[in-house]
Every structure is written in structure tokens, then in C-alpha cells.
């Protein structure tokens, strides 16, 4: 009986820890920690305007990509 309690607790905690690990791996893979200075300063440039700019840039990227793909050869 108590074996199951321990098993459950270990399972849950390792699972939660695993989620944290996966998030970290994703961060490293997508280059978020490549530039330590920028990464630390990013918090200063985190406003409404910046979010809007970012959204717009993403939209533009999508459009450009579309255009590129439909380019008649």
C-alpha cells in the first residue's frame, strides 16, 4: 500500500521536474540564452509597443514567406 504512495509521489514530482527540463531544453535550442546581455536586458524592452511591433513583424514574415512560395518560376 505505502509503496504505491511513494510511487505516486515520485511519479508526479519527476513529471513536474521533467516539464521544467523540457522548457529549459526548448529555451536553449531556440537560442534564447545565446546572448546573455540581451537576455538580461530584454526585461527593459517589454512594453505594449514592443509587443505590437513584434506581432506586426511576425505578420510581415508570414506575408513575405507566402509571396516567396507562390513565386512563379
Amino acid at each position: 500500500m505505502d509503496t504505491w504512495v511513494v510511487a505516486m509521489m515520485m511519479g508526479v514530482s519527476i513529471f513536474l521536474g521533467g516539464l521544467g527540463l523540457i522548457a529549459f531544453l526548448w529555451g536553449v535550442k531556440s537560442g534564447q540564452f545565446d546572448d546573455e546581455e540581451k537576455f538580461l536586458n530584454a526585461v527593459k524592452f517589454d512594453g505594449e509597443d514592443d509587443l505590437n511591433d513584434f506581432a506586426e513583424q511576425e505578420k510581415k514574415q508570414k506575408q513575405l514567406k507566402k509571396k516567396q512560395n507562390y513565386k512563379p518560376e
Partner: peptide, 11 residues
């Protein structure tokens, strides 16, 4: 117009 992304490394 036409710039897809610009990423500058501060370091």
C-alpha cells in the same frame, strides 16, 4: 519592407 528578420547579438 522586405526584411524578414534582423537579430543582433549584444555581446
Amino acid at each position: 519592407d522586405g526584411v524578414v528578420s534582423a537579430d543582433i547579438n549584444y555581446t
